[in-house]
Design a protein around this nucleic acid. Sequence first.
DNA 1: CTAACTAAACTGACCGGTCAGTTCAAATAG
DNA 2: CTATTTGAACTGACCGGTCAGTTTAGTTAG
Lengths: 213, 213
Amino acid sequence: MTTSPSGGPAGAGDPEKKLRPGRTNATKQKLFEASMELIGERGAAGVTVDEIAAAAGVSKGTVYYNFGSKSDLIAQLLRHGVDILLARLLSVKDESADPLTAMEEMIGQAMDFMDDYPSFARLWVSENWRTPSEWQDTFTELRGRLLAVIGAAIDAVAAAYPVDEAVSRGSLETAVFGACFVVGLDRQTYHPERTRQQSVAAIMASMRGYIVK
Amino acid sequence: MTTSPSGGPAGAGDPEKKLRPGRTNATKQKLFEASMELIGERGAAGVTVDEIAAAAGVSKGTVYYNFGSKSDLIAQLLRHGVDILLARLLSVKDESADPLTAMEEMIGQAMDFMDDYPSFARLWVSENWRTPSEWQDTFTELRGRLLAVIGAAIDAVAAAYPVDEAVSRGSLETAVFGACFVVGLDRQTYHPERTRQQSVAAIMASMRGYIVK
DNA sequence: CTAACTAAACTGACCGGTCAGTTCAAATAG
DNA sequence: CTATTTGAACTGACCGGTCAGTTTAGTTAG
Protein backbone atom coordinates (compact mmCIF):
# COMPACT_ATOMS: atom_id res chain seq x y z
CA MET A 1 0.00 0.00 0.00
CA THR A 2 0.84 3.66 -0.01
CA THR A 3 2.34 3.48 -3.44
CA SER A 4 3.35 6.73 -5.00
CA PRO A 5 2.91 7.58 -8.65
CA SER A 6 5.76 7.14 -11.03
CA GLY A 7 9.13 7.31 -9.34
CA GLY A 8 8.46 10.27 -7.13
CA PRO A 9 10.06 10.88 -3.78
CA ALA A 10 7.49 9.87 -1.20
CA GLY A 11 10.28 8.28 0.73
CA ALA A 12 11.60 8.97 4.15
CA GLY A 13 15.09 8.31 2.91
CA ASP A 14 17.27 10.60 0.84
CA PRO A 15 15.81 13.90 1.86
CA GLU A 16 17.26 15.62 -1.18
CA LYS A 17 18.89 13.09 -3.41
CA LYS A 18 16.92 13.13 -6.62
CA LEU A 19 16.12 16.80 -6.57
CA ARG A 20 16.32 18.46 -9.88
CA PRO A 21 18.96 21.20 -9.88
CA GLY A 22 17.35 24.46 -9.02
CA ARG A 23 14.54 22.67 -7.27
CA THR A 24 14.18 22.90 -3.56
CA ASN A 25 12.28 21.11 -0.89
CA ALA A 26 9.87 24.00 -0.87
CA THR A 27 6.78 21.84 -1.09
CA LYS A 28 7.87 19.44 1.59
CA GLN A 29 8.83 22.36 3.76
CA LYS A 30 5.46 23.97 3.34
CA LEU A 31 3.80 20.68 4.19
CA PHE A 32 5.93 20.39 7.30
CA GLU A 33 4.96 23.84 8.47
CA ALA A 34 1.29 23.46 7.72
CA SER A 35 0.95 20.05 9.27
CA MET A 36 3.02 20.99 12.30
CA GLU A 37 0.62 23.83 12.98
CA LEU A 38 -2.58 21.90 12.44
CA ILE A 39 -1.54 18.70 14.13
CA GLY A 40 -0.14 20.58 17.08
CA GLU A 41 -3.49 22.26 17.54
CA ARG A 42 -5.91 19.45 17.01
CA GLY A 43 -3.92 16.26 17.25
CA ALA A 44 -2.80 13.78 14.63
CA ALA A 45 -6.14 12.05 14.43
CA GLY A 46 -8.04 15.31 14.44
CA VAL A 47 -6.57 16.69 11.26
CA THR A 48 -7.38 15.51 7.76
CA VAL A 49 -4.97 15.21 4.92
CA ASP A 50 -7.21 17.50 2.90
CA GLU A 51 -6.81 20.20 5.51
CA ILE A 52 -3.07 19.83 5.55
CA ALA A 53 -2.94 20.06 1.79
CA ALA A 54 -5.16 23.12 1.74
CA ALA A 55 -3.15 24.85 4.46
CA ALA A 56 0.03 24.20 2.51
CA GLY A 57 -1.60 25.53 -0.64
CA VAL A 58 -1.13 22.23 -2.36
CA SER A 59 -3.36 19.45 -3.58
CA LYS A 60 -4.05 16.32 -1.65
CA GLY A 61 -2.27 14.27 -4.23
CA THR A 62 0.89 16.22 -3.61
CA VAL A 63 0.87 15.15 0.00
CA TYR A 64 0.81 11.55 -1.13
CA TYR A 65 3.42 12.26 -3.71
CA ASN A 66 5.82 13.63 -1.11
CA PHE A 67 4.91 11.28 1.69
CA GLY A 68 3.77 7.72 1.55
CA SER A 69 0.93 8.17 3.97
CA LYS A 70 -0.44 10.42 6.65
CA SER A 71 1.39 8.31 9.18
CA ASP A 72 4.65 8.66 7.29
CA LEU A 73 4.22 12.41 7.13
CA ILE A 74 3.88 12.56 10.89
CA ALA A 75 6.90 10.35 11.47
CA GLN A 76 9.00 12.62 9.29
CA LEU A 77 7.52 15.62 11.06
CA LEU A 78 8.71 14.24 14.38
CA ARG A 79 12.21 13.67 13.03
CA HIS A 80 12.27 17.13 11.53
CA GLY A 81 11.38 18.79 14.82
CA VAL A 82 13.81 16.74 16.86
CA ASP A 83 16.61 17.56 14.43
CA ILE A 84 16.00 21.24 15.02
CA LEU A 85 15.82 20.87 18.79
CA LEU A 86 18.94 18.73 18.86
CA ALA A 87 20.86 21.23 16.78
CA ARG A 88 19.95 23.96 19.22
CA LEU A 89 20.88 21.91 22.25
CA LEU A 90 24.19 20.96 20.72
CA SER A 91 24.90 24.58 19.86
CA VAL A 92 25.60 24.98 23.57
CA LYS A 93 29.21 23.97 23.51
CA ASP A 94 31.08 23.13 26.65
CA GLU A 95 32.86 26.41 26.13
CA SER A 96 31.47 27.61 29.37
CA ALA A 97 33.74 26.25 32.01
CA ASP A 98 30.85 25.72 34.36
CA PRO A 99 28.67 22.72 33.46
CA LEU A 100 25.86 24.22 35.50
CA THR A 101 25.91 27.28 33.28
CA ALA A 102 25.94 25.05 30.23
CA MET A 103 22.90 23.25 31.63
CA GLU A 104 21.15 26.55 32.14
CA GLU A 105 21.88 27.55 28.58
CA MET A 106 20.53 24.28 27.29
CA ILE A 107 17.30 24.73 29.20
CA GLY A 108 17.10 28.23 27.81
CA GLN A 109 17.54 26.84 24.31
CA ALA A 110 14.80 24.35 24.99
CA MET A 111 12.48 27.13 26.13
CA ASP A 112 13.23 29.12 23.00
CA PHE A 113 12.48 26.07 20.93
CA MET A 114 9.10 25.69 22.64
CA ASP A 115 8.42 29.31 21.77
CA ASP A 116 9.39 28.87 18.15
CA TYR A 117 7.73 25.52 17.59
CA PRO A 118 4.89 25.29 20.08
CA SER A 119 2.99 22.96 17.83
CA PHE A 120 5.81 20.49 17.79
CA ALA A 121 5.86 20.42 21.56
CA ARG A 122 2.14 19.76 21.62
CA LEU A 123 2.47 17.00 19.07
CA TRP A 124 5.24 15.44 21.10
CA VAL A 125 3.42 15.34 24.41
CA SER A 126 0.21 14.30 22.72
CA GLU A 127 1.59 11.22 21.06
CA ASN A 128 4.68 10.31 23.03
CA TRP A 129 3.17 8.03 25.62
CA ARG A 130 0.47 6.31 23.60
CA THR A 131 0.75 2.66 24.06
CA PRO A 132 0.67 0.97 21.04
CA SER A 133 1.32 3.80 18.70
CA GLU A 134 2.20 3.84 15.03
CA TRP A 135 5.23 5.92 15.90
CA GLN A 136 6.40 3.99 18.92
CA ASP A 137 9.72 3.10 17.34
CA THR A 138 10.22 6.60 16.06
CA PHE A 139 9.58 8.01 19.50
CA THR A 140 11.88 5.55 21.18
CA GLU A 141 14.72 6.47 18.88
CA LEU A 142 14.20 10.22 18.99
CA ARG A 143 13.66 10.24 22.72
CA GLY A 144 16.91 8.38 23.14
CA ARG A 145 18.78 10.91 21.07
CA LEU A 146 17.41 13.82 23.06
CA LEU A 147 17.95 12.23 26.44
CA ALA A 148 21.51 11.37 25.54
CA VAL A 149 22.30 15.04 25.15
CA ILE A 150 20.61 16.00 28.39
CA GLY A 151 22.21 13.05 30.13
CA ALA A 152 25.65 14.17 29.02
CA ALA A 153 25.02 17.62 30.42
CA ILE A 154 23.90 16.11 33.72
CA ASP A 155 26.96 13.90 33.78
CA ALA A 156 29.13 16.96 33.33
CA VAL A 157 27.48 18.54 36.34
CA ALA A 158 27.92 15.35 38.33
CA ALA A 159 31.62 15.35 37.41
CA ALA A 160 32.15 18.92 38.54
CA TYR A 161 30.00 19.01 41.68
CA PRO A 162 29.24 16.65 44.53
CA VAL A 163 25.80 15.29 43.72
CA ASP A 164 23.14 13.31 45.51
CA GLU A 165 23.80 9.72 44.47
CA ALA A 166 20.35 8.73 45.66
CA VAL A 167 18.89 10.53 42.64
CA SER A 168 19.12 8.30 39.57
CA ARG A 169 20.49 10.07 36.55
CA GLY A 170 17.82 8.58 34.32
CA SER A 171 14.91 9.80 36.42
CA LEU A 172 16.45 13.23 36.69
CA GLU A 173 16.95 13.39 32.92
CA THR A 174 13.30 12.60 32.46
CA ALA A 175 12.19 15.10 35.06
CA VAL A 176 14.22 17.89 33.49
CA PHE A 177 13.21 16.95 29.97
CA GLY A 178 9.56 16.71 30.91
CA ALA A 179 9.62 19.92 32.87
CA CYS A 180 11.00 21.75 29.82
CA PHE A 181 8.07 20.67 27.70
CA VAL A 182 5.42 21.23 30.31
CA VAL A 183 6.71 24.56 31.54
CA GLY A 184 7.17 25.77 27.99
CA LEU A 185 3.70 24.72 26.92
CA ASP A 186 2.07 26.02 30.06
CA ARG A 187 3.64 29.38 29.58
CA GLN A 188 2.10 29.67 26.16
CA THR A 189 -1.29 28.31 26.99
CA TYR A 190 -2.00 29.57 30.45
CA HIS A 191 0.68 31.99 31.58
CA PRO A 192 2.12 34.10 28.78
CA GLU A 193 3.23 36.64 31.35
CA ARG A 194 5.90 34.35 32.73
CA THR A 195 9.36 35.15 31.49
CA ARG A 196 11.87 32.85 29.94
CA GLN A 197 14.12 33.59 32.87
CA GLN A 198 11.55 32.47 35.41
CA SER A 199 10.89 29.27 33.55
CA VAL A 200 14.56 28.41 33.27
CA ALA A 201 15.07 29.17 36.95
CA ALA A 202 12.22 26.88 37.98
CA ILE A 203 13.62 24.00 35.99
CA MET A 204 17.15 24.69 37.16
CA ALA A 205 15.94 24.27 40.74
CA SER A 206 16.02 20.54 40.20
CA MET A 207 19.67 20.72 39.17
CA ARG A 208 20.60 22.78 42.20
CA GLY A 209 18.77 20.30 44.38
CA TYR A 210 20.77 17.52 42.73
CA ILE A 211 23.97 19.06 43.97
CA VAL A 212 24.63 18.40 47.63
CA LYS A 213 25.56 21.30 49.80
CA MET B 1 -26.96 19.49 19.02
CA THR B 2 -26.14 16.68 21.37
CA THR B 3 -29.66 16.37 22.66
CA SER B 4 -30.38 13.50 24.98
CA PRO B 5 -33.44 11.30 24.74
CA SER B 6 -36.44 11.79 26.99
CA GLY B 7 -35.65 13.19 30.38
CA GLY B 8 -32.86 10.83 31.29
CA PRO B 9 -29.72 11.82 33.14
CA ALA B 10 -27.25 12.58 30.43
CA GLY B 11 -26.26 15.70 32.25
CA ALA B 12 -22.93 16.83 33.44
CA GLY B 13 -24.62 18.29 36.44
CA ASP B 14 -26.17 16.37 39.31
CA PRO B 15 -23.87 13.37 39.26
CA GLU B 16 -26.39 11.31 41.18
CA LYS B 17 -29.54 13.25 41.64
CA LYS B 18 -32.24 11.31 39.90
CA LEU B 19 -30.87 7.87 40.68
CA ARG B 20 -33.43 5.35 41.62
CA PRO B 21 -32.89 4.07 45.15
CA GLY B 22 -30.93 0.89 45.03
CA ARG B 23 -29.50 1.83 41.69
CA THR B 24 -25.91 2.72 41.42
CA ASN B 25 -23.83 4.54 38.93
CA ALA B 26 -22.66 1.15 37.72
CA THR B 27 -23.26 1.88 34.05
CA LYS B 28 -21.69 5.30 34.17
CA GLN B 29 -18.79 3.85 36.08
CA LYS B 30 -18.25 1.13 33.50
CA LEU B 31 -18.38 3.74 30.78
CA PHE B 32 -15.84 5.83 32.64
CA GLU B 33 -13.46 2.93 32.96
CA ALA B 34 -13.83 1.73 29.40
CA SER B 35 -13.49 5.15 27.84
CA MET B 36 -10.60 6.10 30.11
CA GLU B 37 -8.72 3.07 28.89
CA LEU B 38 -9.46 3.50 25.20
CA ILE B 39 -9.07 7.25 25.04
CA GLY B 40 -5.86 7.10 27.02
CA GLU B 41 -4.46 4.69 24.49
CA ARG B 42 -5.58 6.15 21.23
CA GLY B 43 -6.66 9.68 21.96
CA ALA B 44 -10.08 11.27 22.12
CA ALA B 45 -10.41 11.60 18.36
CA GLY B 46 -9.10 8.10 17.76
CA VAL B 47 -11.82 6.27 19.61
CA THR B 48 -15.39 5.79 18.42
CA VAL B 49 -18.47 5.84 20.58
CA ASP B 50 -19.31 2.38 19.32
CA GLU B 51 -16.02 1.08 20.64
CA ILE B 52 -16.54 2.66 24.01
CA ALA B 53 -20.01 1.17 24.28
CA ALA B 54 -18.73 -2.27 23.30
CA ALA B 55 -15.84 -2.11 25.75
CA ALA B 56 -18.21 -1.18 28.55
CA GLY B 57 -20.54 -4.01 27.56
CA VAL B 58 -23.31 -1.59 26.88
CA SER B 59 -25.22 -0.39 23.87
CA LYS B 60 -24.47 2.77 22.02
CA GLY B 61 -27.84 4.16 22.98
CA THR B 62 -26.89 3.84 26.62
CA VAL B 63 -23.91 6.06 26.09
CA TYR B 64 -26.16 8.75 24.74
CA TYR B 65 -28.65 8.13 27.50
CA ASN B 66 -26.02 8.65 30.18
CA PHE B 67 -24.07 11.35 28.41
CA GLY B 68 -25.29 13.95 26.03
CA SER B 69 -22.46 13.53 23.58
CA LYS B 70 -19.00 12.11 23.13
CA SER B 71 -17.59 15.48 24.04
CA ASP B 72 -19.65 15.59 27.22
CA LEU B 73 -18.50 12.13 28.17
CA ILE B 74 -14.89 13.22 27.91
CA ALA B 75 -15.47 16.37 29.93
CA GLN B 76 -17.02 14.31 32.71
CA LEU B 77 -14.18 11.85 32.41
CA LEU B 78 -11.69 14.62 33.06
CA ARG B 79 -13.61 15.79 36.11
CA HIS B 80 -13.87 12.26 37.38
CA GLY B 81 -10.14 11.68 37.17
CA VAL B 82 -9.23 14.99 38.73
CA ASP B 83 -11.61 14.33 41.61
CA ILE B 84 -9.77 11.12 42.35
CA LEU B 85 -6.35 12.73 42.09
CA LEU B 86 -7.41 15.65 44.24
CA ALA B 87 -8.79 13.36 46.90
CA ARG B 88 -5.49 11.54 47.05
CA LEU B 89 -3.45 14.70 47.23
CA LEU B 90 -5.66 16.08 49.97
CA SER B 91 -5.37 12.86 51.91
CA VAL B 92 -1.87 14.04 52.74
CA LYS B 93 -2.76 16.08 55.76
CA ASP B 94 -0.35 18.50 57.27
CA GLU B 95 -0.03 16.02 60.09
CA SER B 96 3.60 15.67 59.27
CA ALA B 97 5.31 18.57 60.95
CA ASP B 98 7.73 18.92 58.06
CA PRO B 99 6.20 20.52 54.95
CA LEU B 100 8.99 19.01 52.90
CA THR B 101 7.90 15.56 53.98
CA ALA B 102 4.31 16.45 53.17
CA MET B 103 5.46 17.51 49.72
CA GLU B 104 7.25 14.23 49.27
CA GLU B 105 4.15 12.34 50.25
CA MET B 106 2.06 14.30 47.81
CA ILE B 107 4.44 13.53 44.98
CA GLY B 108 4.31 9.89 46.01
CA GLN B 109 0.53 10.01 45.89
CA ALA B 110 0.73 11.53 42.44
CA MET B 111 3.04 8.74 41.29
CA ASP B 112 0.65 6.13 42.66
CA PHE B 113 -2.18 7.82 40.84
CA MET B 114 -0.23 7.66 37.58
CA ASP B 115 0.23 3.95 38.22
CA ASP B 116 -3.43 3.38 38.92
CA TYR B 117 -4.83 5.57 36.17
CA PRO B 118 -2.18 5.72 33.47
CA SER B 119 -4.80 6.34 30.84
CA PHE B 120 -6.03 9.41 32.61
CA ALA B 121 -2.55 10.83 32.66
CA ARG B 122 -2.20 10.18 28.95
CA LEU B 123 -5.54 11.80 28.24
CA TRP B 124 -4.52 14.80 30.31
CA VAL B 125 -1.23 15.46 28.61
CA SER B 126 -2.71 14.72 25.22
CA GLU B 127 -5.47 17.27 25.40
CA ASN B 128 -4.34 19.79 27.98
CA TRP B 129 -2.45 22.20 25.79
CA ARG B 130 -4.55 22.10 22.65
CA THR B 131 -5.32 25.57 21.61
CA PRO B 132 -8.76 25.91 20.91
CA SER B 133 -10.08 22.77 22.47
CA GLU B 134 -13.61 21.76 23.25
CA TRP B 135 -12.56 21.25 26.84
CA GLN B 136 -10.51 24.40 27.27
CA ASP B 137 -12.71 25.72 30.05
CA THR B 138 -12.83 22.37 31.75
CA PHE B 139 -9.07 22.15 31.69
CA THR B 140 -8.59 25.65 32.98
CA GLU B 141 -10.83 24.98 35.93
CA LEU B 142 -9.44 21.57 36.78
CA ARG B 143 -5.87 22.68 36.34
CA GLY B 144 -6.52 25.55 38.71
CA ARG B 145 -7.88 23.21 41.34
CA LEU B 146 -4.88 20.94 41.12
CA LEU B 147 -2.31 23.70 41.09
CA ALA B 148 -3.93 25.31 44.10
CA VAL B 149 -3.21 22.21 46.14
CA ILE B 150 0.37 21.96 44.95
CA GLY B 151 0.82 25.67 45.40
CA ALA B 152 -0.34 25.45 49.00
CA ALA B 153 2.20 22.71 49.67
CA ILE B 154 4.93 24.83 48.13
CA ASP B 155 3.85 27.79 50.21
CA ALA B 156 4.11 25.66 53.30
CA VAL B 157 7.67 24.81 52.37
CA ALA B 158 8.44 28.44 51.69
CA ALA B 159 7.07 29.33 55.12
CA ALA B 160 9.23 26.78 56.91
CA TYR B 161 12.47 27.13 54.99
CA PRO B 162 14.47 29.95 53.49
CA VAL B 163 13.75 29.73 49.78
CA ASP B 164 15.13 31.22 46.60
CA GLU B 165 12.89 34.19 45.92
CA ALA B 166 14.16 34.36 42.37
CA VAL B 167 12.13 31.26 41.60
CA SER B 168 8.51 32.19 40.98
CA ARG B 169 6.06 30.02 42.83
CA GLY B 170 3.87 29.64 39.78
CA SER B 171 6.62 28.36 37.53
CA LEU B 172 7.79 25.97 40.20
CA GLU B 173 4.25 24.64 40.66
CA THR B 174 4.06 23.98 36.97
CA ALA B 175 7.46 22.35 36.85
CA VAL B 176 6.63 20.00 39.72
CA PHE B 177 3.17 19.26 38.40
CA GLY B 178 4.46 18.59 34.93
CA ALA B 179 7.35 16.50 36.14
CA CYS B 180 4.92 14.27 38.04
CA PHE B 181 2.98 13.49 34.89
CA VAL B 182 5.98 13.07 32.65
CA VAL B 183 8.05 11.02 35.06
CA GLY B 184 5.05 8.85 35.88
CA LEU B 185 4.19 8.24 32.25
CA ASP B 186 7.77 7.69 31.22
CA ARG B 187 8.22 5.10 33.89
CA GLN B 188 5.34 3.10 32.49
CA THR B 189 6.12 3.49 28.85
CA TYR B 190 9.88 3.38 28.70
CA HIS B 191 11.36 2.54 32.09
CA PRO B 192 9.23 0.17 34.13
CA GLU B 193 12.32 -0.75 36.12
CA ARG B 194 12.47 2.61 37.81
CA THR B 195 11.09 2.62 41.30
CA ARG B 196 8.55 4.89 42.81
CA GLN B 197 11.22 6.04 45.22
CA GLN B 198 13.60 7.07 42.45
CA SER B 199 10.90 9.00 40.68
CA VAL B 200 9.84 10.84 43.79
CA ALA B 201 13.46 11.66 44.59
CA ALA B 202 14.06 13.09 41.12
CA ILE B 203 11.06 15.36 41.38
CA MET B 204 11.90 16.34 44.93
CA ALA B 205 15.27 17.57 43.72
CA SER B 206 13.53 20.68 42.44
CA MET B 207 12.11 21.33 45.89
CA ARG B 208 15.49 20.91 47.53
CA GLY B 209 16.97 23.26 44.97
CA TYR B 210 14.25 25.76 45.83
CA ILE B 211 15.47 25.90 49.39
CA VAL B 212 18.57 28.00 49.83
CA LYS B 213 21.40 26.54 51.77
C1' DC C 1 17.22 29.88 -30.57
C1' DT C 2 13.72 26.57 -30.38
C1' DA C 3 10.96 22.59 -30.94
C1' DA C 4 10.58 18.08 -29.28
C1' DC C 5 11.16 15.17 -25.48
C1' DT C 6 11.20 13.53 -20.71
C1' DA C 7 10.39 12.85 -16.10
C1' DA C 8 9.39 15.08 -11.89
C1' DA C 9 5.79 17.42 -9.66
C1' DC C 10 1.26 18.21 -9.07
C1' DT C 11 -3.88 17.95 -9.51
C1' DG C 12 -8.56 16.95 -7.98
C1' DA C 13 -12.33 13.92 -8.73
C1' DC C 14 -13.50 9.68 -7.03
C1' DC C 15 -14.17 5.29 -4.10
C1' DG C 16 -14.99 2.29 -0.32
C1' DG C 17 -15.53 2.71 4.14
C1' DT C 18 -16.29 4.84 8.75
C1' DC C 19 -18.20 7.77 12.20
C1' DA C 20 -21.02 10.71 15.43
C1' DG C 21 -25.21 11.54 16.34
C1' DT C 22 -30.24 10.55 16.37
C1' DT C 23 -34.36 8.07 16.85
C1' DC C 24 -37.43 4.60 18.47
C1' DA C 25 -40.08 0.59 19.57
C1' DA C 26 -39.50 -3.04 22.57
C1' DA C 27 -37.51 -5.23 26.68
C1' DT C 28 -36.16 -5.10 31.57
C1' DA C 29 -36.41 -4.19 36.24
C1' DG C 30 -37.10 -1.59 40.65
C1' DC D 1 -45.78 2.75 36.53
C1' DT D 2 -41.50 4.64 35.41
C1' DA D 3 -36.65 4.83 34.98
C1' DT D 4 -33.33 2.56 32.39
C1' DT D 5 -31.44 -0.07 28.79
C1' DT D 6 -31.35 -2.28 24.40
C1' DG D 7 -30.35 -2.97 19.62
C1' DA D 8 -30.90 -1.78 15.36
C1' DA D 9 -31.65 1.31 11.69
C1' DC D 10 -30.59 5.51 9.45
C1' DT D 11 -28.28 9.76 7.91
C1' DG D 12 -25.25 13.00 6.34
C1' DA D 13 -20.80 14.14 6.60
C1' DC D 14 -16.17 13.02 6.33
C1' DC D 15 -11.80 10.61 5.49
C1' DG D 16 -7.65 8.16 3.82
C1' DG D 17 -5.95 6.68 -0.10
C1' DT D 18 -5.90 6.08 -5.35
C1' DC D 19 -5.17 7.22 -10.00
C1' DA D 20 -5.50 8.92 -14.69
C1' DG D 21 -4.37 12.94 -16.44
C1' DT D 22 -2.02 17.78 -16.58
C1' DT D 23 1.57 21.11 -15.84
C1' DT D 24 6.36 22.49 -15.26
C1' DA D 25 11.03 22.69 -15.88
C1' DG D 26 15.18 20.91 -17.30
C1' DT D 27 17.51 18.46 -21.52
C1' DT D 28 18.64 17.45 -25.98
C1' DA D 29 18.88 17.77 -31.03
C1' DG D 30 18.87 20.39 -35.02
